[in-house]
Simulated scan of single mutants.
Amino acid sequence: MFGLTMLVVIEFASDVCDDDWKKFQSFLISMDRGSKIIIISKLKILARFGSVKPIFLKVLSYDEMRYLFKAMAFGSVDPAEHPQLVQIADEFVKVVHDVRGSLVEINVFADVLRRNLHVQFWRSVLNKGIRYFKRNLSIYGVHPGILIEQGHLVDISDFALHPLSMTLGEPLVNVSIKEEPPSVALAELLANPSIRPEGDFTLIAWKSRIAPHKSFTHYVTSHAPETYEGSKLEGSALPRRKRRGVSI
Score class of each variant (00 low, 15 high):
residue 203 L to G: 03
residue 133 F to K: 00
residue 111 D to L: 06
residue 144 P to R: 05
residue 115 R to T: 12
residue 48 R to I: 01
residue 224 A to W: 07
residue 169 G to V: 01
residue 90 D to E: 15
residue 37 I to P: 02
residue 210 I to H: 05
residue 243 R to I: 13
residue 149 E to H: 10
residue 103 L to Y: 15
residue 29 I to L: 11
residue 56 F to Y: 10
residue 126 L to P: 00
residue 218 H to M: 12
residue 241 R to H: 11
residue 141 G to E: 04
residue 111 D to K: 08
residue 226 E to D: 12
residue 91 E to S: 15
residue 141 G to Y: 01
residue 241 R to F: 06
residue 131 R to Y: 06
residue 43 L to W: 02
residue 123 R to I: 00
residue 65 M to K: 11
residue 108 V to K: 00
residue 236 S to Y: 13
residue 162 H to C: 05
residue 201 F to Q: 03
residue 10 I to S: 09
residue 2 F to G: 08
residue 97 H to C: 10
residue 181 P to R: 07
residue 39 I to Y: 06
residue 246 V to Q: 08
residue 208 S to L: 10
residue 209 R to A: 02
residue 203 L to A: 06
residue 1 M to Q: 13
residue 111 D to M: 08
residue 156 I to E: 01
residue 188 E to I: 08
residue 224 A to T: 07
residue 54 P to K: 03
residue 125 V to N: 00
residue 156 I to W: 01
residue 244 R to V: 11
residue 176 S to I: 14
residue 85 L to V: 13
residue 14 S to I: 07
residue 130 I to C: 11
residue 78 D to I: 08
residue 35 S to W: 06
residue 170 E to A: 04
residue 95 V to E: 14
residue 24 F to V: 09
residue 200 D to V: 10
residue 221 T to A: 04
residue 104 V to D: 09
residue 234 E to G: 02
residue 195 I to C: 03
residue 237 A to I: 04
residue 159 F to M: 01
residue 244 R to M: 12
residue 210 I to M: 10
residue 65 M to C: 09
residue 153 L to W: 15
residue 107 N to L: 02
residue 242 K to T: 15
residue 239 P to G: 06
residue 48 R to D: 03
residue 94 K to T: 14
residue 119 V to W: 11
